[in-house]
Design a binder for these strands. Structure first.
Lengths: 231, 231
DNA sequence: TACTACATCAACAAAAAAGTTGTCCTGATT
DNA sequence: AATCAGGACAACTTTTTTGTTGATGTAGTA
């Protein structure tokens, strides 16, 4: 009857996640006391752009897709979120609304931790604070990459970059491409769905990739990297 | 580029909604200062069962469906939410997680108001508090109805009741039935989708209703009421 | 001026989801 | 033991969504 689970099994999770390893027992208690666990099903929103963010999400299992919503039903995908990552960090210390949406690509077990708990632990525990800062930095760097791509690259480069990006998830999730529609891929590259379809076909013709049903196999890694670099 | 809108048009909304009419100017300011507006698209979750609820949602336009999630991918629909109604009230004064999910049936313009603002206004403004209590009461009564139905009625009665319930929205939203799948209807009645399909057909054969594509026309109101009453 | 790099539209094909129906099984009620 | 209500499953149809392709239009660039 409940979406919230508190079995022993799940309980162990928050101790085991690397990022919580560095906490003192009392700090773990603090976090545990102000967290709740939710199962988001495939397709559910984890965060909704513009909504109040009183908590941070920590992904235990499953994958999600983070994106910014535009006006006219358009959206641009920013990243794929993996287990062990936070969502909504950007809203903890500054703005109190989410500035992006994210949606579950598979069923996701997620901790929600209230902002105050995170803030307090960061203030108390320098090491934890450090990893937070590091995560912010990485996200920032990625945002700049995205921005550069959108500003300067054109179709071929964008799609190549997108394919390489998504392909990096194949180790952990071999079926990653099956989880994404052509529109999703296009929205990562910031081009129209039709253009994405056409480019994928042409990449296949040129032997860079192979299209197997919904799956995409990267054959010529360096070739794509080259195209991505040239823009 | 933004989901959050602050045009003059929308601005007027929060003044015009009947329920905010009774507030003093300063109270309106308080609410306005701690609100944000979000466009939820058809299919988006407005609330997710188990997630922290730091705010209340006020529906400006659009319809949503409120339901409780079960373990095995099952869910039971509780009500259809109309403009002018609140979602998440139940979490303001007591629990700080949502105990149900809700999902947009159409695009929805929604105010999110932080809990604190609501609490303060309720304490200050007796009339406003009164309407809040009233809303709680109504929701409570409806929950008891639902409970009774689930406990005591059987298929025919449940479906009849569901049809009458949904039909009440036809005035404001003639296409209400088109917004609901057979599974949605079944989940209102708490029966399997297949049973719902069969009963609808049999109701049609008996002249209680007419099935036109996805639309359902109630022909014999009293008949259905009778079936609903008998259980 | 012609060309490039796309988006947009329309038409269609393929795949996925929703709806429908019959059959069977189970647990409760008579 | 017999009956009844109603869920579960399987097979199938219909509808909706997603993917694909070619044609057309347009703003910026060589």
């Amino acid at each position: 009857m409940k979406t919230i689970l508190e079995t022993d099994n799940e309980f162990i999770c928050d101790i085991q996640a690397p990022c919580f390893q560095m906490l003192l027992p009392e700090e773990v208690e603090l976090v545990r006391g102000s967290k709740t666990q939710v199962l988001f099903r495939k397709g559910d929103h984890l965060t909704k752009q513009g909504a109040f963010s009183s908590y941070v999400l920590f992904i235990i299992s499953g994958l999600a897709r983070q994106y910014v919503e535009g006006n006219n039903n358009k959206s641009h995908n920013l990243r794929i979120i993996k287990p062990g990552e936070f969502v909504g960090l950007s809203a903890v210390f500054t703005k109190n609304t989410f500035n992006y949406s994210s949606i579950a690509l598979t069923d996701c077990q997620v901790f929600l931790v209230e902002k105050e708990a995170i803030t307090r632990v960061v203030k108390q525990n320098g090491l934890f604070g450090f990893t937070m800062v590091k995560r912010y930095c990485e996200q920032n760097a990625n945002l700049f990459d995205t921005l550069r791509t959108v500003l300067y690259k054109q179709m071929n480069g964008r799609i190549a970059e997108t394919l390489l990006y998504i392909d990096r998830f194949k180790n952990d999730t071999p079926r990653i491409f099956q989880l994404l529609s052509r529109k999703d891929i296009a929205d990562f590259a910031g081009i129209s769905t039709e253009s994405a379809v056409k480019l994928l076909k042409s990449f296949e013709k040129d032997g860079f990739i192979e299209l197997k049903e919904k799956d995409i196999v990267v054959l010529n890694h360096n070739g794509l990297a080259e195209i991505s670099r040239k823009g």
